[in-house]
Every structure is written in C-alpha cells, then in structure tokens.
C-alpha cells in the first residue's frame, strides 16, 4: 500500500530559531496520527508546513493525488496546491471563526467548497448541505442561520462539515477540540471518529491534549524544540514512553 503522505526532512526556521527540524514520517490511508508537544514545540509550524500554509526551508511533502499519483506538494504550483486544499485536503482550525465565514449561512458555508469545484445547481448544493448538517448533528432547520448564532461546539461541527463535504482524503486538524467544554469535546471526538471510519479519512491532529490523541489517534509523534523526540503507537507511547520529555509529559497530566 502506498502511503497517502510521505514527509521527508521537513524543516522550518524563523531566523535563528528552529520551527521544526528534519521531520520525516509516512501516513497511510485511513490512519490518524496525533502530534503532541508543549506550546512552541513546533507542532503547529509542522502542520502548517505540511498543509501548504507555510513554506518550509527544505524537505519534501509527497501526497498521493487522485489524478497524478505521487506529487511533492512543496514544488507543486500554487493553483494546484490551492485546488488540493479545496478538494482532497481539509483543514480544521482550533477557532471555528478562522475556518468559517461568519457572515454566511450554515448552508452557504458548507456549499462553498462544492461551488468552488464547479457545482452550479442550487438544489443539489442545498441537499448536500442539509445532509452534512445531519451528519454533524446540527438540526437541518438551522441551514439558513449564520454561525454567529451557533454555540462553540456547533460552530466546530459546522467547520468540520464545511471541510469534509468534498470528501477529502486527508484532514489537518489544529487543536480541533481546544476551547470546548469537556462534554462538547466528547461529542466532537465521537463524531470525528465516526467520520474518519466512514470516509476512510486520514488525519493529522495537533493537540496538547493527551486524552484526545488516546481516543482519536492510531499513532503519535511527540515534538520538543522543533524535533520529533518519539513516535510510535499511541497507547505504547503514552503507556511506555521512552524519551525523557515524553515521560515528563505523560506524568504531568491526570491519568487518561
């Protein structure tokens, strides 16, 4: 099986400071990988480099595209990369307002990607939007409401629907449950797990919440100071951490 994403030696510096250094890994179809570490560990820098939101100083990010097979997304043309960003990739922001159009109705938010790839039938767009509201457990009657009128958890679910409507194969998630109440988090985790399975979605989830990765991620990468200090099966890394930093991280949180 070909990895969906092959990351090789991705590095990013901010002047003399290291953002992330020499990161390499493979992500296979259907796999969910967590990236954990403290603030400033480089996990968000890495995610943004991989998702094409930051340009790394070096390395390769090879994605198995539907049309052309393996392509290094770093050397891809910008239109191609942006197209990938609207079709095969999803990016879920920590703050839903960064990933939603707050002045546009829920239906319009979900429909945007469809329209961006050429859908021009209002009825079909609306049908798909309603279907997705259902899937993320938002009442279809709210289709014409703006996200401003939604709770934090609903906004986050709407953001997910907006991202997944084109059936992407890879989702980048930056602290998707951050800032939500614990009960709302649980609902979101459950939803994400179901969607990942149903859609065969692969995902990279950046978080500092070890409970989140334990429930969502198959594999785990631990970062510190821009470097990956440990990687492996999620439960193995959490239950039998090998690196000093991981041991500190695991012992610093309440039992999960």
């Amino acid at each position: 099986m070909t990895p969906l994403l092959q990351v090789r030696n991705v590095s990013k510096r901010y002047g003399s400071r290291i953002g992330c250094a020499e990161v390499s890994f493979d992500l296979y179809p259907g796999e969910v990988m967590g990236i954990v570490g403290e603030s400033g560990s480089g996990k968000s820098t890495l995610l943004n480099c991989l998702a094409g939101k930051l340009t790394p100083d070096g390395g390769q990010v090879v994605f198995d595209t539907r049309m052309d097979g393996l392509v290094d997304t770093l050397t891809m043309s910008e239109p191609q990369r942006r197209m990938l960003g609207r079709t095969d990739w999803a990016f879920v922001h920590q703050h839903a307002r960064d990933g939603l159009r707050m002045g546009v109705s829920a239906g319009g938010n979900i429909g945007e990607r469809l329209m961006a790839v050429g859908e021009r039938h209002y009825g079909r767009i609306r049908g798909r939007a309603a279907d997705w509201l259902d899937r993320v457990e938002i009442d279809q009657a709210r289709i014409d409401d703006r996200p401003e009128a939604f709770s934090g958890g609903m906004q986050q679910r709407l953001q997910i629907a907006r991202n997944l409507v084109t059936g992407p194969r890879l989702a980048f998630m930056d602290e998707p449950t951050g800032g939500l109440d614990v009960s709302v988090q649980a609902r979101l985790l459950d939803l994400l797990r179901g969607l990942v399975r149903e859609m065969g979605l692969s995902a990279l989830i950046v978080t500092h919440d070890l409970a989140v990765v334990r429930l969502l991620a198959d594999r785990l990468m631990v970062m510190k100071g821009g470097h990956v200090v440990e990687a492996g099966l999620t439960d193995q890394v959490l239950d039998d951490p090998q690196h000093a930093y991981t041991q500190l991280l695991v012992s610093s949180v309440l039992q999960v």
């Binding site: 942006r82 109705s105 239906g107 319009g108 945007e112 469809l114 329209m115 961006a116 021009r120 014409d144």
Partner: peptide
Amino acid sequence: SLQEYGLMHVKLYEDISR
C-alpha cells in the same frame, strides 16, 4: 489570478436561501 470564483456563487446561494 487563480480563477477561484466559488465565492461569487456563495453570494448568490445566500440570496436564494434568504
């Protein structure tokens, strides 16, 4: 420059939905 005009249709979508 990239002819990403989906957003224009979002505006029309909003019109029809409202």
